[in-house]
Design a protein around this nucleic acid. Structure first.
Lengths: 220, 220
DNA sequence: ATATTTTTTTAGGTGCGACTAAATTATATT
DNA sequence: AATATAATTTAGTCGCACCTAAAAAAATAT
């Protein structure tokens, strides 16, 4: 029975995300992700290594083990199920749920999670377009990319977001750039990487920062 | 903004319950309630007194302040709403929800609580018959007593329970003594305070311990 | 290849919430 | 009222998860 503290779960989650985004899992990166200091990370890595949740050698970085992976996925599963619940059942807005789910993801009860999943109808995607791992950690493959990666003159449908902060999501809401919307990217400006797109026959400008954080699936 | 730790919330809750049941709020009693040691309680009482959640003077015991009272009620509200949710929506059994609600009650988000309450239809009672405080801390008055307090030859309807442990609730389930059931108490045995009652035309015996933990409303 | 910068680790400390053992105060008994 | 018992508090520790400052190793630049 591996019962982890909230901190330990958060470390595993952070390491998982860095690993998946191929960002290189350094002490510094983890610290930035968790809003903590590198020295604290080093200590925790030793503890997690003792528990066989990752392999760690001084100065050599970190590799999660299968067990660590599985536990991280379990936390992510809970986070995304709760987000789905909060939006679909409790009618919270997509920019209101992240902080709450950060708390709910640490509730320990397998029974609870499985019943919640069933109650929600085994959803595949959370309100931000992220795939929800099933009971066995499997999740649907994602075939999407950032707006900053698609070519001018292509059509795309908004699939999800990379940034989950309330500020960003509210901004998207204001621009009417929500999940499911389709648009045509008409131009990318070389000097600042901002893009022009047409949505509902209206032309709009979005900054590089915004473009990098919107995930789309290409159409046709 | 008074943001309490989980420990602090648990102390307030324990003190509230002792206070309400008129059990005398001693360091010892609180420790027993929280499965901790009296010395630890003393320290925490000082901290809670500093935060004006109770008044405390050495060796003189404790009195919760209005603020402490309100915060305790808030935690209890959340506990009971979550229990209701777990049973009514997720279909957990009444003996499976207490532990989980002990965790969920510490989730911090006013918005979440109010939406949950609305989603559940503003329930007045939780699955164990305990009243759920509303937004303002008001809850319906309870007019019930223990089976150990009613007289032979009276009819009663089961209203709730005092003991929330899984063991006790499973026991009741087995005896078919669940909320809403009505019975006639036919006799109380002097030597062990056990009682005989008739439910669905069947006579059954229940121990003093069980009788003390079943709440009933008297009929006719 | 050496020097500089960045990253990572160690050493030593802090606050929280628990603990044990010992001292103190309150309560009950005779 | 004196004494025994029970409740409470103090004093001193501990583990966890964080911190800062300084040392060590790795990466980068010259």
């Amino acid at each position: 029975m591996s019962n982890l503290s909230i901190s330990e779960e958060n470390y595993l989650k952070a390491i998982f995300h860095l690993y998946k985004h191929g960002e290189g899992i350094g002490t510094n990166a983890i610290a930035r992700h968790l809003d903590t200091k590198p020295a604290s990370v080093t200590e925790m890595l030793k503890k997690l290594a003792d528990k066989k949740l990752l392999t760690y050698e001084k100065y050599q970085g970190v590799v999660p083990t299968r067990k660590g992976f599985t536990l991280a996925l379990g936390v992510i599963r809970k986070h995304r199920l709760w987000e789905y619940f909060l939006v679909e059942k409790l009618k919270l807005k997509w920019d209101e749920v992240h902080e709450i789910a950060e708390q709910l993801e640490h509730i320990q009860s397998d029974l609870l999670v499985e019943q919640l999943d069933a109650y929600l109808g085994f959803p595949k995607l959370d309100p931000h377009g992220d795939p929800i791992p099933d009971k066995d950690g499997k999740m649907c493959a994602m075939n999407c990319c950032c707006v900053s990666e698609i070519k001018p003159n292509s059509n795309a449908r908004i699939f999800g977001v990379k940034n989950h902060t309330s500020a960003f999501l509210k901004h998207l809401e204001k621009l009417n750039l929500t999940i499911g919307k389709t648009f045509t990217l008409v131009n990318r400006n070389d000097f600042d990487q901002s893009v022009e797109l047409v949505l509902n026959k209206q032309t709009m400008h979005i900054s590089k920062e915004v473009a990098e954080n919107i995930l789309v699936e290409k159409l046709k």
